[in-house]
Design a protein around this nucleic acid. Structure first.
Lengths: 232, 232
DNA sequence: TCAAAAGTGTTCAGCGTACACCCATGT
DNA sequence: ACATGGGTGTACGCTGAACACTTTTGA
């Protein structure tokens, strides 16, 4: 399987994964970046990445790399785009498959992150990045904006239980504009995938806001019946 | 640049391009497929593909491969998705970056195609394909459906001059459902990118239908002002 | 009692959708 | 004359967007 009879006249290439890791905290959309600990570009800020192993698929490699950095295995992860300019990496020709991940920032293993020299940056405050990583981030932002319009993946960035004002802040951070809270509430609730709990969150306001859970069963049901977004 | 000091402990992989080539003819959306002339899977139907060279980007490789088969160089070509399952190619581990192309079927060089053993297949009549090429086709169809809703790329599949009924047939073929001709007309014309000509097309009807051109300048203008689709 | 965030309804405009008839022309 | 495809206008329902006040409670 690893030996090729008919392809051997062709060149092989390094294939890597780079991950745009989104989190949400303090009302801000954030990215997890690492300070490169190896050449080339040692010491500069970079996306988390790694090479694709011989016996793992691209998705498996992406999950492995993400877990290495965050300790998390069950997260939203989606292939974004593949970057293959000849000179994109200053060291060698490397083709990089970019993935983006949405993680619940509180579940993230800070200790692991520290080992990799990882830090969270607000999306509006991202430092210069190595190679073409900035392009990857921009593309991930566009994709995230579009996706959150047509699929409720925003929940992946919030804790299990969350309030509607929290969810709204998340959407405002993603779409970089303020939303009307009455319209937002109406729209979110009308989707029928919010499960209201009897608890309140009382840290951010005196009155307290009701907590909700994302009702995944109902979501799957609606999707399977094609009721939700029949143009996806 | 091709020698790597720091990466050499990592494995290299074959990286290929596969192209889903769309055309439109006889009221049907079609795919250009080739009969493989080499092992593995010689003689079976396949997407057009090839390996990425050492000194070309992915986009360049995709254009080269497309031109090899069709003789066309200025066509709509967009990266679709990258497929990297370990066993996806029965011969060796090959990572394939899929692209999809929209070509004006009349501009296509049949002679070149014949040399490659290429044939057009209606989208509803695609034969079994090698490896994971069927998955690529399905993903390309989804992307095309979505794209044509939010961007007028359908024009890429029609000749320079075309009638509104022709354009409607194209959209019906892509979305696999009938459309109301009054609504279709209204919507298309309201976008303001159709340039009406003084000529008529009189082959398909006795009365004749007015020919139009896609007004690219106006389209670019509208896009640059953000007037058209500000959610893209 | 006041500050700060949560929660609640209505109105309007624009857009997609449904729908039926006349027109022009070649045979 | 008739068959074939081209071309046209209106009415309705839904959805997104704008908009202001009351409630709760800790400090």
């Amino acid at each position: 399987m690893t030996q090729s009879l008919h392809y051997k006249k062709y060149a092989k290439n390094y294939v890597a994964i780079d991950s745009i890791i989104f989190g949400f905290d303090d009302g801000k959309l954030k990215l997890l970046l690492i300070k490169r600990k190896f050449e080339p570009c040692m010491g500069q800020w970079s996306l988390m990445g790694g090479f694709v192993g011989e016996n793992e698929s691209l998705d498996e490699a992406a999950y492995r790399i993400l877990e290495d950095l965050t300790g998390l295995s069950k997260v939203y992860l989606e292939q974004l785009y593949t970057y293959g300019d000849v000179e994109r990496d200053s060291e060698a020709r490397v083709i990089s498959v970019a993935y983006y991940a949405l993680i619940k920032i509180n579940d993230y293993d800070c200790e692991l992150g520290r080992k990799h020299g990882a830090e969270w940056f607000a999306i509006d405050d991202v430092p210069p990045l190595v190679f073409d990583h900035r392009k990857m981030v921009d593309r991930a932002m566009s994709r995230l904006k579009r996706k959150t319009i047509i699929q409720p993946i925003g929940f992946e960035l919030l804790p299990e239980k969350f309030t509607i004002p929290q969810l709204q802040k998340l959407y405002e951070a993603i779409h970089q504009k303020d939303l009307d809270k009455r319209n937002f509430r109406k729209k979110i609730l009308s989707m029928g995938v919010m499960q209201k709990l009897d608890e309140k969150e009382t840290h951010t306001s005196k009155r307290g806001a009701f907590l909700y859970k994302f009702d995944k069963d109902k979501y799957d049901y609606l999707m399977s019946n094609g009721n939700m977004f029949d143009f996806v």
